[in-house]
Amino acid sequence: MTAERTWTRSHLLGLEELSADEILSILDTAQSLKEVSTRSIKKVPALRGKVMVNLFFEDSTRTKTSFSLAAQRLSADVIDFSVSTSSVSKGETLRDTARNIEAMGVDVIVVRHRSSGAPLLLSQCVECSVINAGDGSHEHPTQGLLDLFTIRETFEARGKKISDLHVAIVGDIANSRVARSNIHALTKLGARVTLVGPSTLVPGDMKKIHPNIAIAHDLDAVLPQVDVINMLRIQFERLTSAAFPSVREYSRFFGLTHERLKLCRPDVLVLHPGPMNRGLEINTNVADGDHSAILRQVSNGLAVRMAVLYLCVGANSVARNLA
């Protein structure tokens, strides 16, 4: 590790507000913590006696499981606050729910919500740490970080930096919080980003985020130029019927098939945030092939979430000591 890095944030709400150094602090911490999962005793005592609550207003299995396991590897206690069976369905406000949870002595709330900005609102009415596990179409910061971590890990081994890379993000950019977190993180670290998809799903104003962003509607023309392809899931639950004529047509133009992979550079890296619609946005032989890092993304997600929990809960403790 070269520079002396620091971290002072109690919350992780998005990657847009982070500096490049802060993003690297998380990635370096995750790199150090990855080793813990290779031990026979997969646990360190860093957050012993701390409590993490999963507050998920949207269905999620893998993100919630990943956060729970990450907290347990740091020796924190974990509680799932099940929204459908709780007083939320009886009309309690988000603020009241959060403050009631906090009153039980919680140190960090991991929140997923269908409304963009819900984690920000939460962070303003509680004293404990708040981590965004996905809010509407705004951000999914830990997914962006684990994608970045996987890219850095892959290309560092080949002697390349993130700023040397060109990344294509393909699919429903308009509705994707994963895309937004990736775009912010990649451009802050100097990568070129091309957003690919039908014009109905790739809004032109995304270009305004950073001069390194380009927009394309022809996947075959982009593929030979890129080092990384991040295939987003078609989110049937968020799409309106007008987005594209049929799933089959989308798949024909924007699905990553074995034939399309032949257009790519021989060392191209294929990512997918999961869960996959096999045969739609990505073909089975590509998803399970040599270029795919999809399962490595899941393992890295654990290390990244351990890093985020350690840094945010730690910084919150420090802030309270200094207060």
Binding site: M1, R5, T6, W7, T8, S25, D28, T29, Q31, S32, L33, K34, E35, V36, V44, P45, A46, L47, L74, Y310, L311, G314, A315, S317, V318, N321, L322
Partner: peptide
Amino acid sequence: TMYRDDLSTRAAITIPQGTE
């Protein structure tokens, strides 16, 4: 870093460097 007893009393957070 992950084994220190001063997470609740220290003045700044430490970025771990990893065990090898």
